[in-house]
Amino acid sequence: MRIVVLVKPVPDTTGTERLGDDLRLDRASSPPIVNPNDEYAVEQALRLVEAHGGEITLLTMAPAGATETMRKALAMGAHGGVLVSDDALAGACALSTARVLAAALATLEFDLVLCGIASSDGGGGVVASGVATLCGLPYLSYAGSVEVTDDRVRIHRLHATGYMVLEAPLPALVVVTQIAVGEPRYASLKGIMAARSRVIRSLSLADLGLDPAAVGGAAASTRVLGVRPPAVRGATRVVRGSAADAAREIVDFLDERRFI
């Protein structure tokens, strides 16, 4: 089974990322990590390959330095990677990203594409559906479990009151949630060492036959107009004391504000 996992480097979620004057991420301000949601997809891919055999390829669109971040995902056990990188892509919108990833997928052989629900920096959550649409793949989202049989994939699609069982023929694209895998595995040192010698193939827009004017920052369908920090939240009040006293205090607090 050949699985492609879409992986995005994002600024460290505990860091203090800054935006540059161009309102784009100042990548020097925060070391990149693998988008945590994508790690669930990698974990799901590893489990499927452990059960059925096969290979996992990571697909990333990012600046050239992203190979370091990709190696962190390779260290979990993925077999190789493809990095689409081109200066013209700086400032690309979600739609452009989907087009580029779809074009890159077209050069790969695969049975299944897995991705996370959204990136922790952009947070749009639309690239996956865009890729599926552009590639003409069945799109199975919010998977709380993923099961593969011969030539079909079956998922539990989570929603507010329970789940639906969806099934599609392979190849297909599945958006994996944390519910499906719990915690992603921690890369062992043996895995980190093995990842060093795995091949990450670099592709430019020219390699994919895409016109920089059509998918790059210049053609972005969305633009950042301005940014401001979130409003400072009120101070936290910690309630201490015996259970009964604490409960009374909390009830009074809520009552004063007419929550109850």
Binding site: R185, Y186, S188, L189, K190
Partner: peptide, 18 residues
Amino acid sequence: LVLEDSRFPREIAPAFTA
């Protein structure tokens, strides 16, 4: 256990990552 098998109580993974 840690360096070769990644086998450890799951609750310490966040501490390692952090």
